[in-house]
Amino acid sequence: MGILRFVAARAALGVLTLIAVSILLYLGTQLLPGDVASALLGQSATPEALAVLRAKLGLNEPAYLRYLHWLWGVVHGNLGNSLTTGTPIASALMPRLGNTLFLAGYAAIIAVPLAVGLGILSAIREGSLMDRLASILSLATISFPEFFVSYILIVVFASELGWLPSLATVYGGMDFWDRVDATTLPAITLTLVVVAHMLRMTRTSTLAVMSAPYVETAFLKGLSRSRVVLSHALPNALGPIINVVAINLAYLVVGVVVVEVVFVYPGVGQLMVDAVTKRDLPVVQACGLVFAIVFIGLNTIADICAALANPRLRSRKRQ
């Protein structure tokens, strides 16, 4: 299979999965006892009022038509209105999406090089003091819930040392560096949580490659350790490592939910949790869809990158 065909096929699969998830997200809301109209008008609503609202909201149409209407709206940037505030969801969601991506991006910029670097290093120096230390520390941080890490950081850096703010307050038009300052603690929390997973998985992938016969061959050719690692082990570990990074970036997006709540950070995660508490289904739906797009998008891109790193797909068959 040529590389272009693979990319096209994988991208198509990503879109297909996204559609399947969106159907699931949409059908999920149909499980609600009663419907949106009765939820909007409450218990005391008259049947006439309900009927009028149902017609207005298009609730009398069959489910698949309503889904297609919804999807059509989503594609055109219309996510519907919030049940609680009545305002368009898109206008509330978009700035928050920006905030969430800023925080996740901030954490990723620290976490990815750190974790991949340390992971490769512990694999190469397997069994060394550094490897064992990294292994114990990563086990600890994997076991810590996000909020535990958050509170420890707040106690140390905000309450005791007073270096950084304990609440990540951001607002529109905020200066970039002020924003960085405000989001440093949540970003470090996310980094700690995600680095451990990424480090462990990178180490495992690299170790698997380091025990391959061709790495032994390279050593027996008299190549230096760094040469063996850089030109024989890493190119082959690249595919697995890209996947590791993608899985963990996706995990980071989820970790954002809890961290946003702890630091009262105005992102999509906090919005979603709020909406769940208030049972504001259209908002929950919209947030879920946004997370799905990010999550599935990342995985698709990772698969494509991993494939690009594989010479079997890259080169044409010449035999």
């Binding site: 391959a212 016969p213 061709y214 032994e216 061959t217 390279a218 050593f219 027996l220 050719k221 008299g222 190549l223 230096s224 030109s231 024989h232 190119p235 082959n236 790193a309 594989n310 010479p311 079997r312």
Partner: peptide, 25 residues
């Protein structure tokens, strides 16, 4: 010393060449 010995003065041919060659070079 070992590095400049291996491959230069003593060389090795493995049983399964299919596994002993790096697939991405």
């Amino acid at each position: 010393g070992r590095r400049s010995l291996r491959g230069v003065r003593v060389a090795y041919v493995a049983q399964s060449a299919a596994a002993a060659f790096n697939p991405s070079m």
